[in-house]
Design a protein around this nucleic acid. Structure first.
Lengths: 231, 231
DNA sequence: CATGCCCGAATTGTATACATTTTCGCTCGA
DNA sequence: TCGAGCGAAAATGTATACAATTCGGGCATG
């Protein structure tokens, strides 16, 4: 990732994390000046970071009225996961044909990290969720890299990758997380075997299972979306 | 589309058009100051426009080294069309289930405009290409709107929609353009009939046919990509 | 003559000042 | 009491000034 000069990049990462982890809630206004003071920056880099986040769809902004954290409805979540399932399925299919040793190694490392995060004894549960989320990102990132399709990779990393994944892991119980781990391994094996069909189908299913869990939680609690963030 | 205040938006549109139509060639540096003078703006809106274009993938930029028009290899073009075919196929599938009367009307209007652009007698061939490109955009945009999937729409409109489509129409002969027109109508009928399967397959094929024509031209002339732009 | 270093011009990154627009409370009048 | 209109405060949009970085050319040196 093109690390711009430190300030813009730091603004970007901090704002992003705050949104993804739910500290900035959906609908909340993001005032440039205020955020700048919070991170001790001028408005310029904050502004640029907000524009980046807008391009990624995490933030919505209107002409002279500034940026707000984007709100997502249940239907949109459902649609979004459908889309992710297709795109990542396609990525897995390509990876089965194109992956190289470096990306395979990264994939295995991600899987190992996931297992480690799952097993270790954590003081702070939020830290565990972060570790699992990071490892998960690494696994999916490795598949994307293996697909060797620049544009697809950027779409998935920077546009479809919403806060939802992180929030989803909060909702996952242990069994569900272990099931994710299993799917990661199956996907790895299919890719290693060069079987694009199976890799694609497994990835599709893997994402859709995540969708089901998340939606079930949301519907069961009759929650508005931002209910998710109130934990 | 969120029209920001005039200057940024105008910088964005002018730079974009210059890239899409090939006046700014792949690999060319885009110096903020110079462009600002060209359009009589300060660097600020130019800078913002460039960042937007970077997010869309039309421009590539590195940390302290500025922006250049992105270069695209033959393989990437092929991959890109594959991706577009899948995404637009999916959009057509959704549209068959979700489209409403307003979008259908827009679709028909786009098809009519395409036919008109194809038939009229043009002084300037470039104007005809522009008219055809606009009508084509309208048709595909209507399908996207009918899919009622915000994120998908934005991906296709703002991220995968590269200069290639415009360049492709330059390469099309009359028969190929008429074939596109035919497919537009078939897709419309399938959507109207609510047949997602067929709509999806037709759209997939439609995009892939465009890919084939473009790639055939490129390979036949043993061209580098920017050969396209030298006309 | 080749090579490496240093300096300066060009360009990007960041901060700040100014202009324009929006927001929101308040007064005034029906 | 309620609503329209006004105006000040706040926030965004744009311009400009300043800092840091990159890149290339010239000069010294081996």
């Amino acid at each position: 990732m093109a690390t711009r000069r430190a300030t813009t990049q730091s603004a970007y990462q901090q704002i992003r994390r705050a949104i993804v982890e739910g500290r900035y809630r959906p609908g909340q206004r993001l005032v440039e000046q205020r955020i700048g003071e919070e991170f001790d920056l001028s408005r310029t880099p904050v502004r640029e970071a907000l524009r980046q986040l807008e391009a990624e769809g995490l933030v919505h902004s209107e002409p002279n009225r500034g940026a707000v954290v984007r709100e997502v409805s249940l239907d949109e979540i459902s649609d979004l996961y459908d889309l992710r399932a297709r795109l990542e399925g396609y990525a897995a299919e390509l990876a089965a044909q194109r992956i190289g040793p470096a990306e395979l190694e990264r994939l295995d490392a991600g899987i190992a990290a996931f297992e480690h995060a799952l097993g270790a004894d954590w003081d702070d549960e939020l830290d565990q969720v972060r570790a699992i989320d990071d490892a998960n990102r690494e696994v999916h990132g490795a598949v994307l890299a293996g697909a060797r399709h620049d544009r697809l990779g950027r779409l998935l990393e920077r546009t479809v990758d919403v806060p939802l994944v992180f929030q989803a892991f909060r909702q996952f119980d242990r069994a569900q997380t272990e099931r994710s781990h299993l799917f990661h391994q199956l996907i790895r094996d299919a890719i290693l075997a060069g079987d694009g069909q199976r890799a694609s189908a497994l990835m599709f299913e893997h994402v859709m299972l995540g969708r089901d869990v998340l939606l079930a939680h949301l519907e069961a609690s009759e929650a508005q979306v931002d209910e998710l963030f109130s934990t």
